[in-house]
């Protein structure tokens, strides 16, 4: 009996316990470095807490005053944070649309057994290359290239294409275009490789049987590739969107932190960063962060729901 009991105890050993133990380190790190700061940010957003010179003002509880201030109409007749949100959205779309189109096309080319492109490794390396450059260095390079006395203007002038140097960094369309272009260049390689991995994960026999049944490439793409690629596509799309919402380094460096012209390239994170200058305004910065958190959560949920809907 005694023996039996022992045996049954050994038999019912719970391996799940080890699972929990193994994930403890992650949760400890998550609690300390992610959850705690997040809660602290939310807490700070209800306080007046900044520096005036070397004097710390606060923290004084002010309720929702910081949020109210965020949504106050300014002298030019608009709400700054709404403008910056739209900027962020536009900047992301300019970069993301070509990024997804080109990446999808390249992924299809590279995985196509009919095309069977030679030197794939080389191309994959090359298109991934821009991602290895630091965003700020990349941005600095474009800043120098497109300045009024920079090489692009010199080239255009020596070809006689323009008489006066073009102020690329002074016009909304070109600044936004350049930011989009940089983000596109930096990320399309990464997206291509992720999508390729997704396509390669699809059972080859699916394509073969479709082709045997006489379907053309378009039909294969929309009826086989796309539906089966969906989980990976959603992942790539949401990561790109969150990256877009957090866009900072490229526009910050390209416009020297000013978000020019007329603040049309000021993103939400740049706005947040402005509060954390000499004044270390944790109250307002906290409020912006909380708003960002809500926007990200809502958008992600929305995208997930729409794309996965049957």
């Amino acid at each position: 009996m005694e023996k039996m009991k022992k045996l049954s105890k050994t038999k019912s050993i719970s391996y799940a316990k080890w699972g929990y133990i193994f994930i403890i380190p992650f949760f400890v790190v998550y609690l300390i470095f992610t959850l705690y700061p997040q809660l602290l940010t939310i807490y700070n957003s209800f306080f007046e807490y900044y520096r005036d010179g070397l004097n710390v003002i606060g923290p004084n509880f002010v309720g929702l005053r910081n949020y109210k201030e965020l949504f106050t109409i300014n002298n030019a007749g608009y709400v700054p944070i709404v403008k910056y949100s739209l900027n962020t959205l536009i900047l992301w779309i300019i970069g993301a649309v070509p990024q997804f189109l080109i990446a999808m096309l390249l992924a299809l080319f590279f995985t196509s057994t009919r095309l069977n492109i030679k030197g794939q490794q080389f191309f994959k390396t090359v298109i991934y290359m821009p991602n290895l450059i630091m965003a700020s260095a990349f941005s600095m390079l474009f800043f120098a290239l497109f300045s009024q006395v920079g090489p692009i203007n010199q080239l255009l002038q020596s070809w006689g294409a323009v008489n006066e140097p073009i102020n690329f960094l002074g016009m909304t369309i070109s600044v936004r275009g350049l930011i989009g272009l940089m983000n596109f260049l930096m990320w399309f390689g990464n997206t291509t490789i992720l999508l390729m991995a997704g396509i390669q994960g699809i059972d080859e026999s699916m394509f073969e049987s479709a082709r045997l049944d006489g379907s053309n490439s378009t039909q294969v793409f929309f009826n086989i590739t796309m539906p089966l690629l969906m989980p990976i596509f959603i992942y790539v799309f949401i990561t790109s969107m969150i990256g877009g919402i957090q866009m900072f380094d490229v526009p910050q460096v390209l416009t020297n932190g000013k978000g020019t012209p007329n603040l049309t390239s000021t993103t939400l994170i740049m706005y947040l960063n402005n509060f954390l200058g000499v004044s270390k305004n944790f109250g307002m910065a906290g409020a912006v962060s909380v708003l960002l958190f809500i926007i990200t959560a809502v958008l992600s949920a929305f995208v997930f729901k729409t794309i996965t809907r049957k």
Binding site: D52, I57, N75, L263, N274, S279, M284
Partner: peptide, 14 residues
């Protein structure tokens, strides 16, 4: 001028 005032508001909350 509005942009300038906004920037001051952000830089110097006091």
């Amino acid at each position: 001028l509005a942009n300038f005032k906004d920037s001051i508001k952000t830089t110097y909350p006091g």
